[in-house]
């Protein structure tokens, strides 16, 4: 995540909103949102190192495995639930998207776009892609569910999720043409289509 991603997400979050950041890493995004948007909320993390880093960052963090769901959080308790650079590493993709919109009014997801032309080129050359947003070798990656923007949008349609906004970036700059080809990182803001 870069400052640009933080700004994009912060732009979508109302001041003093209640925010849940799933897979909050070292808590840097929550810290940024606390400072810039005066939000309240929690991060959820699994690894000891990130729990410690988040506590050091002065954010509330709950050690928990996202794969087991969000049962510790009541329905509708957040204005926004963020899943940043984590969706592609989750086994239970559909359940977590449903859970996000159960506990929150709105969701924000960011993931590396597998459809980015540099990724496609590497596949065409016969290799799994390695890039800034997918910085892992195939044999040593936490990513199990990589997707393109088209794939993600198709899944949203299937799950009754309405996409409100979409920002696509490459190297920290927004791209607007042929995004599924020119964009390295996709950032989506969505809600339940049922309202």
């Amino acid at each position: 995540m870069t400052r640009h991603d933080f700004q994009t997400i912060a732009h979508w979050i109302k001041p003093a909103a209640r925010v849940l950041d799933l897979g909050c890493g070292d808590g840097a995004l929550l810290r940024y949102l606390q400072d810039e948007r005066q939000i309240t909320g929690y991060g959820v993390e699994l690894t000891d190192a990130n729990i410690l880093a988040s506590v050091k960052n002065g954010v509330n963090v709950i050690q928990s495995d996202l794969e087991t769901g969000l049962s510790v959080f009541e329905s509708g308790s957040f204005d926004c639930v963020i899943l940043s650079q984590t969706l592609q590493a989750m086994r239970h993709t559909e359940p977590i998207l449903r859970e996000m919109l159960r506990v929150g009014r709105e969701g924000i997801v960011t993931f590396p776009n597998f459809g980015y032309w540099k990724n496609r080129l590497q596949v065409l050359r016969g290799h799994m892609p390695v890039s800034d947003d997918i910085p892992y070798q195939w044999y040593d990656t936490p990513n199990v569910h990589l997707c393109t923007m088209h794939d993600f949008e198709a899944l949203c349609a299937q799950l009754g999720i309405r996409i409100r906004e979409r920002v696509v970036m490459t190297a920290g700059r927004q791209v607007s043409y042929l995004q599924n080809l020119t964009g390295s990182l996709a950032v989506y803001r969505f809600e339940s289509a049922a309202g």
Binding site: Y42, D48, I51, V55, N60, I62, V72, S77
Partner: peptide, 17 residues
Amino acid sequence: VKALLDNARRVSYAEIT
């Protein structure tokens, strides 16, 4: 932790291995 979250309290939770 759940009861504190239900009350929107500031809480951190770590499960130490």
